[in-house]
């Protein structure tokens, strides 16, 4: 990561992301206050919280895209601020929430953007860059769609193109901002299958989620945010049993009797 793509690509490094006392204020309004969190490699880490709890801002703070009022972001023990911009882009990749595009890039052109942090301003793509693009396209089953205009793709296909772009950076830390919110159930499951595979392959996944079902079923670890503060952090089972969801979301998991065993559903509780 530090010496560039070769080290990151070789997988000799497992970036462990540590947040220390992260506070962010926008326009005088505190958005995040004193967040401490560790994200380990080879795990799917979910970040959940009600609307306005600061989930997306947390991702921005990790990327340095919003000014931090306090705190440190440590990547593999090194302060993120000490990375130059391109170096950081080779270490952390973002799959943005909004993948809508007004311009008719081809799928392979979008994925190639993942290689920009590896290239000097006027440098042409090297064979290694094209290889990384091929690999990312193959991994997301995008080879048949590579020449397609992204503006003609379905939401799920576009999401895959942006995940492929993130993989093409060869960063081992992937941030995903609500990657499933516009997808149908089948595509949601596909995305989580992929995220689990990536995590097993040594990637560190940090995924912001609105859907609690998916968070609890597919994440290895969960960070709960509430009005800019860390409400809880732990294994899904611990979080479920701690009763923190009632406080934060005002919901609880209720068991429904059924012939084929119990079914569960979320029930509103009075705060």
């Amino acid at each position: 990561m530090i010496s560039g793509s070769a080290a990151a690509g070789a997988g000799g490094l497992e970036p462990i992301l540590r947040l220390e006392n992260i506070s962010v204020a926008l326009g005088g309004c505190p958005i995040l206050a004193g967040i401490d969190a560790d994200f380990h490699s080879a795990r799917v880490n979910a970040v959940i919280g009600p609307n306005g709890s600061g989930k997306s801002t947390l991702l921005r703070a990790i990327l340095g895209a919003v000014p931090r009022a306090s705190g440190r972001v440590l990547l593999g023990g090194r302060e993120a601020e000490r990375f130059d911009r391109r170096e950081l882009a080779r270490a952390i990749a973002l799959v943005p929430q909004d993948t809508h595009l007004d311009f008719s890039f081809r799928v392979e052109e979008v994925v190639l953007m993942g290689r920009y942090p590896h290239l000097r301003p006027l440098e042409r793509e090297r064979p290694r860059d094209l290889q990384a693009v091929e690999e990312a396209l193959r991994r997301l089953d995008l080879l048949p769609l590579r020449r397609r205009d992204v503006t003609t793709l379905s939401g799920g296909e576009r999401q895959r193109a942006f995940i492929a772009r993130a993989l093409a950076t060869e960063a081992r830390l992937l941030l995903l901002d609500e990657p499933i919110s516009h997808l149908d159930i089948g595509h949601r499951l596909d995305i989580f299958k992929l995220l689990s595979e990536l995590a097993r392959g040594g990637y560190t996944i940090v995924v912001v989620l609105h859907d609690l079902d998916f968070a609890f079923r597919h994440a290895d670890r969960i960070l709960v945010l509430d009005r800019g503060r860390k409400a809880s952090e732990g294994e899904p089972q611990e979080i479920l049993e701690s009763g923190i969801l009632e406080q934060v979301f005002g919901v609880r998991l209720a068991k429904l009797p059924s012939e084929n065993g119990p079914h569960f559903t979320w029930k509103r509780v009075e705060k």
Binding site: R60, L63, A65, R85, R86, L88, A89, I92, A93, L94, P96, D98, T99, L101, D102, F103, F105, E109, V110, M113, G114, Y116, P117, L119, P121, L122, F162, T169, L175
Partner: peptide, 24 residues
């Protein structure tokens, strides 16, 4: 202008997205 080509491409995919890939 030619030096700006890649950053302009990135910007077309959104500001945050462009930032995350190293555009200033």
């Amino acid at each position: 202008s030619l030096f700006l080509a890649r950053d302009l491409n990135l910007l077309l995919t959104g500001e945050e997205s462009a930032w995350s890939l190293g555009a200033n």
